[in-house]
Design a protein around this nucleic acid. Structure first.
Length: 171
DNA sequence: TCAGTGATTAGG
DNA sequence: CTAATCACTGAG
């Protein structure tokens, strides 16, 4: 029987290159506070890894915006891009080690901006802790899987090396 | 193919 | 204060 159990801190404390692919097929759960829960299976992620990664916001240093990425893994990093779209990221790794996994798609909602629109994610979720939050968390479906990889999308500015890292993971 | 949109950042 | 940039999307 599938475990349907909330993932604990240890899951998120590992390197983003381990966590990002393992998020595939896990279930993102949203509770509305009135007893209703919506469940979304994660189908596409990307890894952003440390100050050296020119595509990672932490490559520009520690700022108010990037502060949450310096926390222990398990927090959410939510920011607005192009003035329109909220991006949902899961902070990974130990503290002082800025990394995050971008949730690009869940089942039925393809594209990071569409995911947050469908789920009602906005800046109020920035910093939320998936390990203790009453309104959002991730459950282990107990299903193992294979996956594909590719270059990350939308980071042409990062230069040839970082642009070509195969850090996008999808089913 | 390309405009929209506004938070964030660097710089004067 | 100004100006540039942007981990995207939908319309045409």
């Amino acid at each position: 029987m599938a475990s349907n159990k909330r993932l604990g801190r240890d899951f998120y404390l590992r390197d983003v290159l381990e966590v990002a692919p393992e998020l595939l097929l896990k279930t993102l759960v949203m509770a509305d506070g009135k007893g209703a829960m919506a469940r979304y299976v994660i189908t596409e992620t990307e890894a952003y890894r440390g100050p050296e990664d020119k595509a990672c916001h932490a490559s520009k240093g520690r700022t108010n915006r990037t502060e949450v990425m310096y926390h222990d893994g398990g927090r959410l990093y939510v920011y607005l891009v192009y003035g329109i779209h909220w991006m949902l990221n899961i902070v990974t790794g130990p503290s002082e080690n800025p990394q995050a996994a971008l949730i690009r798609s869940v089942k039925d909602f393809t594209g990071p901006g569409r995911v947050t629109r469908a789920l009602g994610i906005d800046r109020s979720f920035n910093g939320e802790d998936l390990v203790s939050s009453a309104r959002i968390w991730i459950e282990d479906s107990g299903i193992a899987t294979g996956y594909k990889t590719s270059e990350r999308i939308g980071i042409d500015y990062a230069g040839e090396y970082w642009k070509t890292r195969p850090w996008r993971y999808y089913l």
